[in-house]
Nucleic acid binder design. Sequence first.
DNA 1: ATAGGGTTAG
Length: 586
Amino acid sequence: MVHLPTRFDGRRKSAEYEAVVRAGPHLRRLQQAHAHLVVTGCHRSRALITKLLTLSCAAGSISYTRRLYRSLAHPDSFLFNSLIKASSKFGFSIDAIVFYRRMLLSRVTPSSYTFTSVIKACADLSLLRVGTLVHSHVLISGYSSDSFVQAALVTFYAKSCAPRVARKVFDEMPQRGVVAWNSMISGYEQNGLANEALAVFRRMVESRVEPDSTTFVSVLSACSQLGSLELGCWLHECIVGSGIHVNAVLATSLVNMFSRCGDVARARAVFDSINDGNVVSWTAMISGYGMHGYGVEAMEVFHRMKDRGVVPNSVTFVAVLSACAHAGLIDEGRLVFASMKQEYGVVPGVEHHVCMVDMFGRGGFLNEAYQFVKGLSSEELVPAVWTAMLGACKMHKNFDLGVEVAENLISAEPENPGHYVLLSNMYAFAGRMDRVESIRNVMIQRGLKKQVGFSTIDVDNISYLFSMADKSHPETNEIYHYLDELMGRCKDAGYAAVPELAMHELEEEEKEYALRYHSEKLAVAFGLMKTDHGVTLRIAKNLRICEDCHSAIKFMSVVTNREIIVRDKLRFHHFREGSCSCLDYW
DNA sequence: ATAGGGTTAG
């Protein structure tokens, strides 16, 4: 047989290529392969350099990638696309944008592939201005009707907190595949626009586009935001009925949805059906138990997770410590915090510190909470830690320390209305109504407003929203009348209004009225009126439940013999027979 | 010769 030189040459190059591929995404092995290419004289091969570039990016070494790039005289469009794609894919978003700029400066024409990658980089960095500029390049280059570029733009605008622009791009798409719908749904969901996300989902179904597991992951998140169990159960049925394979990601979304909608037993049932659970699924279950105050169950799952060889990470420890805090498991929490550092090498962050302060505070160890705070370095003493400390002071009615902490917090974050409200509450406790008044004036001067609280409840698949002293509901008179009558029965049973939040609302004349008609009370009254005896009420509130409402609902659960579940900003309260699952620490 | 796209969980 005759071996022609060209053929021989081709085979030799292929062997070099194989050597680079074999090195894989490992920096040292890639450098060895590179050195070998230099020795054999193949280092000028574009194909090999391109492969080396993407692999070094995958190996996490952007500096080596840059060196390879600089070694090239005239990079072509292939090389730029590979560079931009790889750097954006592996998290080097800024480099992706820098390479894109170099591409333009080198007068190399970008393609739709270039745009999808560079737009993703802008999305990951939420760079609205840069991304908008790239969008203009898209329009000039004539790629504005490319469906991949459009879907990338939808995601980009959504991640840059511009969901309305995202919607505009979405609406202008001539045809929308499942990914485009998913981009829009997740875009709304991530901006906290749960109802909008669900509306797009319904339109997607009407348009006869089959939702896939990604669709449901986003829709379930939207449902979790709303806290609507009825909606969640319907979605669960949709998933089962559609025959979609419930992978670990989707199952974890279901666990999260059921937990956040108040049905932790169903969350557990889904969790038990997961075969290929990873650290995220386990963490979701732990956090689900934690927010319901089931600390023992959370610890049990945590230990089983470790027995199965799943390694907990930083997020897992936040879930575990928070579960300990909400269940009063101080000793367990201490051990977990120590093992987190020693056994797992997880460096405690702000969230872990907040959990610890919270845990000591709730558990009645105010002094220990303060010692913990004082043991932190100055860089670790961020406002969130002080806020937790302030919450502990409030709980234990420690006026002096609380005022000191609150004043520091206000000087650190003068625009956060929550700090003023807490300080005001401290003064109200101490009977210093003059100080309460002056804080109120400062808030008015600085144009600060308390967040508006609202509560939702579902009755017969319809979600009803109540805000404080709300009168928009058509049956307002009946609801208020029922609530007054109910509060009368509670008083007979021993309820006394908790004067805590004398300053809960800024409008003086509405104080007492406001307290009597807080949104959660209205929602409970409405639910009691509209549902049969034996039906558990589920209410979701956007802020923390107030002390007076907490006390009132405990009495309501007795006098009406009902189970009432309230989700507030941080956790669940299960009211039954006059007591609450939070044991009055929240 | 070289790569190949947009969406998803705690």
